[in-house]
Amino acid sequence: METGIHDNEILIDHFMNSRNLGKIEDADGIGMAGDPSCGDYVKVYIKVDKVHLTDIKYEVFGCPSAVATASVFSELVKGKSIVEAQLIDNHDIVEALHGLPEQKLHCSCMAVEAFDKAVIDWVMKSIANSKEEFESLGLPF
């Protein structure tokens, strides 16, 4: 067992006092990502106003590193535009946590992947909504 995470105060704080933890009932987009090799999963819920990420929440089944990376990621992206948020990657997460043990680096990819899927979900829903709107007005889509 690695001892690295037990000495990382930032990681411990994000695990014990996870930010933005939970779910958004009327989410604009939902995405889930997992690592079947270790059985960990992260589910991300986003709320988008025009192009701004107004809220993000997540649920996680995983090790402390998986929880902490999701927590840090939510702080890094919340309030940003979708385009800006999508530029945040796992290196930014690792940096914000002041490092992760080698065998835990893969955890940091899960939140990013789940977020990307949530964005895709939001885009698809937006397209569907626009289509409905156009059709209700009798306009070609």
């Binding site: 995470i5 037990h6 014990m16 995983g62 090790c63 402390p64």
Partner: peptide
């Protein structure tokens, strides 16, 4: 998840 439980 076991590790989160042990950590807690």
């Amino acid at each position: 998840e076991g590790e989160s439980l042990l950590f807690s």
